[in-house]
């Protein structure tokens, strides 16, 4: 017989109550208090799958830890009529396995399934992926094609930022000191939508993408493309929406779309670099090819 999973709030736990270096708030009120007291000094840990890698053998240098793992409200997924709210501490594993995500946001589900490995998916979180802001972050293009908004909180209040405006450069974003991403807000489309996700990496598992592409097309009642979003990862300093391609897809029937032309736009619009995971030239070629295959996949759906 399978054992029931143990609630993380098991009273056995006591940590964080006796340390001035490690804080684990269990409510938003506690969180606020900690943010008020220590804003500039805190290093925030969510799943830890990026933070502990970046600070390997240097963890002792971290002055004060803020661990979000005990904030149950950050782990919630709430479904409303017009939107879904995903707490920033929701793991890739849950995104991969939850039916609601698969139903409403299949591209996110596929990308979550492609993250790292079971060990990374079980700990790594959507919020962590966002805040790390790597151009190769697997979930990022998928959030952008669903027009995600981010709720950011701090001791001073809260604000909503468009995911498309959040990223400012490689591992850079608009978050100020003491600001946290609390949740991701994804609008629910009334209309039918179809999407695709392509991740290209040099091996089949545990790999950072050489390039990735998320596509989401929303259709109106006449089966014309009402809204189109294409976002490419690992091909620019930030996950990059290809608005020119999106515009040229709009108001067309999918069968009338000149796939090669769209692919060429995507390939031209990205600004990739040469690095260990691929040359810029390679990324442009593949961007062209995977745009075609992603569109073809949607046509075939």
């Amino acid at each position: 017989m399978k054992k029931q999973s143990i609630n993380v709030k098991n009273k056995l736990g006591t940590s964080g109550k006796d340390s001035d270096k490690y804080f684990r708030p269990e409510s938003k009120e506690e969180l606020k208090k900690i943010l008020e007291d220590y804003t500039d000094e805190l290093t925030v840990i969510a799943g830890g799958t990026d933070l502990l890698v970046a600070n390997y053998k240097n963890l002792y240098k971290i002055e004060k830890w803020l661990d979000l793992n005990w904030l149950d409200s950050f782990k919630e997924i709430k479904i409303f009529d017009d939107k879904v709210e995903i707490g920033s501490m929701v793991t890739h594993e849950r995104l991969d396995k939850l039916d609601q995500i698969k139903e409403h946001f299949p591209v996110i589900q596929k990308a979550a399934a492609d993250v790292g490995s079971p060990q990374i998916r079980s700990r790594g979180t959507i919020g962590g992926n966002i805040v790390t802001s790597s151009p190769a972050g697997d979930l990022l293009p998928t959030l952008l094609v669903y027009d995600a908004k981010l709720k950011i909180i701090s001791k001073d209040g809260e604000r909503i930022v468009d995911a498309n405006d959040f990223f400012t450069g490689p591992k850079q974003n608009v978050l100020g000191d003491g600001e946290l991403v609390e949740k991701i807000i994804l609008p629910l489309e009334e209309n039918k939508s179809k999407g695709a996700w392509v991740k290209v990496g040099k091996r089949k598992a545990l790999v950072i993408s050489s390039i990735s592409l998320a596509l989401n097309l929303v259709f109106d009642n006449d089966n014309k493309i009402k809204d189109a979003r294409i976002c490419v990862g690992s091909a620019a300093p930030v996950p990059l929406r290809i608005e020119k391609a999106e515009q040229s897809l709009k108001n067309k029937k999918i069968k009338k779309v000149n796939i090669a032309e769209i692919a060429q736009i995507v390939s031209d619009e990205i600004s990739p670099i040469d690095d260990i995971r691929g040359t810029a030239e390679y990324r442009r070629k593949v961007a062209y090819n995977i745009t075609k295959s992603a569109l073809q996949e949607v046509i075939n759906q």
Binding site: K202, A205, I276
Partner: peptide, 9 residues
């Protein structure tokens, strides 16, 4: 960044 084959390869 130094990749060796995984079980899926």
């Amino acid at each position: 960044n130094y990749l060796v084959p995984s079980i899926q390869d």
